[in-house]
Amino acid sequence: MNRLLAAELLKIRTTRVWWGLLLGVVGLTAIGSVATAATAGLGAAGGRPGLPAATDPAMLRSIYTAGFSPAYTFVLVLGTLIITGEYRHQTISHTLLVTPRRTRVVVAKLAAAALMGLVYAVVAAVVAAVAGASTLAIRGYPVGLASTSVAGAVGLTVLGTAIWGALGLGLGILIRNQIAAVVTGIVGLILLEGLLALLLNVVHAGVVAKFLPTQASSAIVAGVSTGADQLPWWAGALVLLAWGALFAAAGTFTTLRRDVT
């Protein structure tokens, strides 16, 4: 099993897409954390409260976990590409000739996608730390990186991003077509789902909304409260994991059982 995982990671490392996506994570994270740190505490006027102050623990968590959503979005795409690319470039036959037991291939790919999520999240955390801390320092605020609440939140983004990688892979197996899978992942899972969650909250059905993948992952970080009803962080992680397992299992029992022609 270890050598299958190593082979999957080698596949990722020997093409260029993984670092292209990583560059996207780095760029968006830097922008996100600088913007959050630069605007913290602004907007308060005439007794009306503005954004939480830069010293507010929730605000600090927001600044230093700014890389979470870029990291999980891009690793979702990477996870999808790991499997759909095999069908697109017709390399799936090679993979299945070496490992005819198809579930073993899926497990190795799930693990590889999760590990890539880990890598993306760690890089994003470092970028957010550097960009956020320097912005706060320039504004003359304490950096606040040492706070345990920040460390905890950042640690959970790493866990959450790893799960998103596996989620992307599950989605890719289920929807074998590369473009369809990526579009479904980004538009469906991230954009439409946010809209759906908003609607559910409006009609006071937040109970359902909090079990959607994106809401569950917000719960994992629990940064600045969105006002929505959220799960505790560990339940968020479990819910996200369940989504990933659901997609991967559904994909394994449909696409992967099919004839490879």
Binding site: A7, L10, T14, T15, V17, G85, T91
Partner: peptide, 19 residues
Amino acid sequence: TSFHPGRSGRNHLRVVALA
């Protein structure tokens, strides 16, 4: 059956050998 166009021939073989 094909190969990933962005991967070198040697790396393709390395992947198979490793797996």
